[in-house]
């Protein structure tokens, strides 16, 4: 399966991973190889087969609506890259 360079660039944007110009050919080739592998799926006859997203059958357990998590800001922000006034800081977001 051939994947085009532009497609890789689009994927990289969606996944927010900067790809260096010098490696893009290599990335494209290796990704193409993996997609060739997964393309073997197309040969499978799956007509009428129900897709499953969990290996086990089961239903969601529900939690009681009770506060169990108290303020842990100090501990949680101690490992944050950049905080001020209790806020996580990022480069200014432009909407």
């Amino acid at each position: 399966m051939n994947i085009k360079r532009q497609e890789i660039e689009k994927l990289a944007t969606l996944a927010r991973i900067a790809i260096d110009e010098s490696t893009i050919a290599e990335v494209t080739e290796r990704l193409g190889s993996v997609l060739e592998l997964v393309d073997q799926l197309q040969a499978a006859d799956t007509s009428g087969v129900e897709a499953i997203s969990h290996p086990m059958q089961g239903t969601q357990r529900l939690r009681e609506d009770e506060v169990t998590e108290l303020n842990q800001r100090q501990a949680l922000q101690a490992i944050a890259p950049d905080t001020e006034e209790g806020l996580f800081l990022v480069p200014k977001v432009i909407e």
């Binding site: 950049d82 001020e84 006034e85 806020l87 996580f88 800081l89 990022v90 480069p91 200014k92 977001v93």
Partner: peptide, 9 residues
């Protein structure tokens, strides 16, 4: 009340 050029989350 935080650094200019940033957004606070």
């Amino acid at each position: 009340d935080f650094r200019s050029g940033t957004s606070g989350i």
